[in-house]
């Protein structure tokens, strides 16, 4: 996307996008790929929601430290999403419970929803991107 394409005061008239994240960070490339697509996609002024379920909830875990492993810690970037107008973050209640996690353990503010609400979110989306 070229910088010249940018217009100030762009309107939110795009489609409803839902990114579904189901993998932990680092073990596979899915988490990082998803984050990059979200950031690139944010330039297109769509209505974006992010869902984290299964091991995907671990992407948002506080205190990630990759110094000993030699990969880049990309977890701080989730805190930049707000500036990209990506503000709707949902996590699965069942996935959090199964892993003994609470919202206190996460680096960003999220809305915790149960499986039924997650299903509605998927039904409601016009485009679903799965990672």
């Amino acid at each position: 996307m070229s910088e010249e394409d940018y217009e100030e005061d762009g309107e939110m008239n795009g489609k409803k996008f839902l990114y579904v994240n189901r993998r932990g960070p680092y073990g596979t490339v899915y988490a990082l790929e998803s984050l990059e697509v979200v950031l690139i996609g944010a330039a297109f002024e769509q209505d974006v929601s992010l869902a984290f379920m299964d091991d995907g909830v671990y992407q948002l875990k506080k205190g990630q430290n990759t110094d000993g492993m030699g990969m880049k810690n990309f977890s701080p970037t989730y805190r930049a999403l707000e500036m990209y107008d990506v503000e709707k973050l949902f996590v699965s209640k069942e996935s959090m419970d199964e892993r003994g996690l609470t919202t206190e353990d996460l680096i960003v503010d999220v809305e915790v929803i149960d499986n039924a609400a997650m299903a509605d979110l998927m039904e409601d989306a016009e485009v679903v991107l799965s990672f």
Binding site: E3, F74, P76, A80, M83
Partner: peptide
């Protein structure tokens, strides 16, 4: 802080 180079739209706003 964010481990990312911001897009121009985000940079301008920030």
């Amino acid at each position: 802080e964010y481990q990312i180079a911001p897009a121009v739209r985000v940079l301008t706003k920030a």
